[in-house]
Simulated assay, not measured.
Amino acid sequence: MAVTAPARLGKLPPIQALQTRRGRLSYMLSGRGAPAVVLFSGAGVSLQGWEPLYPGIERLGAVFGWNRFGMQGSDAPGDRQTGAGVVGALRELLSYAGVQPPYVLVAHSLGGLFANLYARLYPAEVAGVLFLEATHPDDGELLKKHEQQLVNALARVFTLPEVFFEANVRAELACVEETAREIASAGPFPEVPVRVLTGGLTPRSWQMSPGVVGARRAHQQELARLSPMGEQVIAQKSGHFPQLTEPELVLDVLSTLMEDVKAVL
C-alpha cells in the first residue's frame, strides 16, 4: 500500500453526537445547499481523515461526516459491522440530524462498500457517488491478506500508535465478505453520475504483488462502469489516501461531479 506524506491539514467543523436506537454516533455538519455531501471513511479512519478537504468542501454545499461505531466519539459496536447495519445506522443518524436526501456519497477505501450498498438499497436517496480509492466487493481477500499492513499504514499516515486503529480495522474487515454478499443480492446500482478517483502510485512489491495490483486496478475500472455516467480519474501523486496527499484534486473532481448531479436533478 503506497503511503505518502499528507498535505497541510485544514480545520474540521465542531463534532457533535446523537443517540440512535443502535447507540451514540458522532458526526459533523457544515456548509449549506443541496444536495448534501455524505462522507464515508475507510476502516480505522476517524473524521480527522477528511481535514485537508476543509474548508473548501463546504463551498460545494452541506457536508455531513460521521464516525462509525467503534471510532472516536461513537459507541462501541453492539452488533457486527455488516454493510446493512452500517447503512441502517447512517440513515437513522441523517434523519435525526435533519439532513434530507438526495445525497452525493463520497466514500474512501472500505467506505466504498457501504456507499455501494447504500446506493443499491436506496437509489432514490442517492444523486451521485465519488469512490475515493474505494474498496470493490471482490477486494475482500486482498484486504484480509493485508490487514496488518493497513494498520501499519494508518499509523504512519496519521502518526498515531497502531493500537489506535487495530480493533476497529479488524472488526470491520471481519464483515467484508458478508457486506459483499449484501451488495450482490441488493438491487442494481442507480444510473447516477459517478467518479472513481484512483491513486496512481504503485505499491512496492513487498507490500503488494504485481498480480494483486493489477487485479485491484481492474476493480477500480469496474467501479467506474457501475453507471453509464461513470468516469475514472487517476491521482498521479497519491497512493491510498488522495484526500490527504492531493486534496485540491479531490475537491476539483467532487466539484465537477456536483455540477453533473445538479444538471440531472
Rank of each mutant, 00 (worst) to 15 (best):
S109M: 02
T256D: 14
G65S: 06
Q16P: 11
E51C: 10
T256C: 08
Q48D: 15
Q236K: 15
P55A: 04
E191D: 13
A84S: 13
V129K: 00
R204H: 12
G200P: 06
R181S: 12
L25H: 07
K144M: 14
V86K: 09
P161M: 01
V176P: 12
P52G: 02
A155C: 03
S46Q: 08
G85W: 07
E231S: 08
Q221V: 14
T179K: 07
D139Q: 11
L226K: 04
V264L: 10
V213Q: 11
Q72I: 14
V63W: 03
S26R: 04
S26D: 04
S227V: 00
L53D: 03
L53E: 02
V192M: 03
P190I: 04
E172P: 08
F64I: 03
V38S: 01
I15F: 07
E166V: 14
L18V: 02
R204L: 14
Y96A: 15
G33N: 06
P14Y: 05
V151W: 01
V264M: 10
N168A: 09
V169C: 02
H219K: 13
A17Y: 05
E191T: 09
K237S: 12
H240W: 09
G199Y: 05
L201W: 03
P14D: 08
E51Q: 12
E172Y: 06
A224H: 08
S41E: 03
Y96C: 13
L53I: 00
D252Y: 09
M71R: 13
G140S: 12
S185K: 14
F241I: 07
P35L: 05
G61N: 05
V99F: 01
V261A: 05
T245E: 05
F40I: 07
P161E: 01
E259I: 13
G23T: 04
R225L: 11
L201R: 06
A153N: 11
Q207T: 13
A174N: 03
F114A: 15
V87N: 00
M1D: 10
K237Y: 12
V163C: 15
E162Y: 10
R204Y: 13
Y118R: 06
P101V: 01
R195C: 01
D139K: 10
L47P: 09
A167T: 09
Y54R: 08
R120I: 00
P137E: 06
A127V: 00
Q236M: 15
P14N: 07
D260F: 07
G214V: 14
F241Y: 07
F114Y: 15
S46E: 10
D79A: 15
R216E: 13
G83V: 05
N168M: 08
D252M: 08
G111H: 01
V38Q: 00
E133Q: 14
D252S: 12
R181L: 13
A97P: 02
I183F: 03
I183R: 04
Q149S: 14
P123A: 00
M1P: 11
E259M: 14
L105K: 00
